[in-house]
Design a protein around this nucleic acid. Structure first.
Lengths: 165, 165
DNA sequence: ATATGTGCAAATCTTTTGCAAATTC
DNA sequence: GAATTTGCAAAAGATTTGCACATAT
């Protein structure tokens, strides 16, 4: 059983990013659902979709302000809520390694797991057929109609294990 | 592939609780690690361990106060932090269906998933060999040394699907 | 006796909300 | 022009912290 690994974060930038998760076009999905697209929403959606790292609300606000200094925190939170309602972004904790904030990412077409290293803070993403199988099994057995899957793992990455701390 | 289901929450109390997850003896593990056990810690640990539902900090405080009116919120949070550091409890979001608080449960000897129904609020627990397999696979492929696994699923439960809302 | 734990009150951090003004269709 | 979105400032909710006092070993 082979899965795919993608790395981001602290030292992870260095790791080879094989097979990134297949992305979606948020803007198109929103308009298709009849959501009114204002300039600010477009901006925020673009930032989330193109982000190379996982953004929290504050980071998203900061990035958005570079293009529109007038944008407010409230708008960021309201847009996040909107995207969540439509199931277009996923909310992550990443093991809350730095405070209780949440991180967001455009929902990919395939669910994936986030592995967070407690030592160096690197985040790796992991997809595999096994996860899909597990989902199918849970559905079948519980009768649940799954809408969101959040699988987060905390531990020590390969590199940090070697540097034996 | 068969997994085990256990239900709790709103309407879940009614569901048959088959095969609860195997529990651990927190107190013993703590003393074994040389953690100083005060009366209040003993009280809190007992409550968490014997809880039938997932407790948030406020609920834990409230329950503890029934036995020791003097116990403070800060102590609750400090004890939670202690237990988390020692890997003896798991922290859950349960899809944040009512605010941003966290829920806690004594770590079981086998990792399990929480399925939360967005409609009725029921929480079901799910263990299966597939989850163990997925963990093993992730370890093997990423080289991660896994310390915590948090798998939470949001959706609509069987009952709510039928009541067609 | 010394280190550790606790209560209290205030602080911090993240997220939400009411309302008047601005924007979109 | 009516409905929706936004900024602002204030509120709310969860969790953390400094410090003086209490408790455990």
């Amino acid at each position: 059983m082979r899965g795919n690994l993608v790395a981001t974060g602290s030292q992870a930038e260095q790791s080879s990013g094989v097979n990134p998760m297949p992305r979606r076009l948020l803007m198109k999905e929103l308009t298709a659902r009849g959501v009114r697209m204002t300039a600010q929403r477009r901006l925020l959606v673009t930032i989330i979709q193109d982000a190379r790292r996982h953004l929290d609300a504050a980071a998203l606000l900061e990035m958005a302000r570079k293009r529109d200094a007038a944008i407010d925190r409230a708008t960021v939170y309201r847009t996040i809520a909107l995207l969540k309602e439509h199931g277009l972004i996923d909310e992550l904790d990443l093991m809350h390694m730095e405070g209780e904030k949440h991180y967001y990412e455009a929902k990919t077409t395939r669910d994936h797991c986030h592995l967070a290293c407690f030592q160096c803070g690197a985040i790796m993403e992991y997809t595999s057929a096994s996860l899909e199988r597990l989902k199918a099994e849970m559905c079948a057995q519980s009768g649940f109609q799954i809408r969101v899957v959040r699988l987060e793992v905390g531990g020590v990455c390969k590199v940090c294990q070697k540097s034996a701390n």
